[in-house]
Design a protein around this nucleic acid. Sequence first.
DNA 1: AATATATATGAATATTTGCTCATATGTACT
DNA 2: AGTACATATGAGCAAATATTCATATATATT
Lengths: 117, 117
Amino acid sequence: MVEFDRCGINCIHEEAVKAVKEVLFSEDVAISLAELFKALGDPTRVKILFSLMTRELCVCDISAVIGASESAVSHQLKILRTLRLVKYRRDGKILYYSLADDHVEKLFIQGLEHVTE
Amino acid sequence: MVEFDRCGINCIHEEAVKAVKEVLFSEDVAISLAELFKALGDPTRVKILFSLMTRELCVCDISAVIGASESAVSHQLKILRTLRLVKYRRDGKILYYSLADDHVEKLFIQGLEHVTE
DNA sequence: AATATATATGAATATTTGCTCATATGTACT
DNA sequence: AGTACATATGAGCAAATATTCATATATATT
């Protein structure tokens, strides 16, 4: 077994590093989690999602509510769709967007708990 | 009162827009929330935080566990510190980092629920 | 004081990202 | 078929970001 001695005796805690590494999830999971949080990590997307917590809305409504161009909203909605955070139904020319499930709400509640503390 | 008619009758749902706007949190809260999630939205920081879920670790340990340079880890730790996601205690030359509270764990659990579904 | 070590910080750089503008797609209506 | 409208998409650009490298700071040891 290779000794870990890049730092002095007191720095690298060999057992700790090994123990943590054993528990560590896969690289893939880390990346997926980061992607999810990154999607939530933009003011425009936060506002879109928060708007949708109230009720389903079309792109045009969202644009009016949050004060962003329809194109910008559409681009952001694509990201949220890809991550299955929102879904939509079509009614004629209009697409009504809504939250895909209750995960976003739960994450927002947890997040707000941290932010407003 | 100003009529909202940028789109045709069927597009902008005036009552919906007004109702949602009334409920909408402040711009500041949206930005704070986005900042929090953005901090969680990077693979390196996800790995750092996940490592710390196991036990407290020094910078050097974290670097070894996640396979990133100590400088990179230190830079990311600064961001996590600023957002009060991690704290540290000093023991001589070594700084031991740990999670600031249980918010991160809760957010990760919620996030994983969405990702692994 | 001088040296070594653990970590922090600043500058520089390459990549990513969010927006705008122009254009395309899909649906409804005539 | 042709027009209008709601939304999507692609290219281009400015701003943000994560890393590396060099240097600074803080603590311990001699």
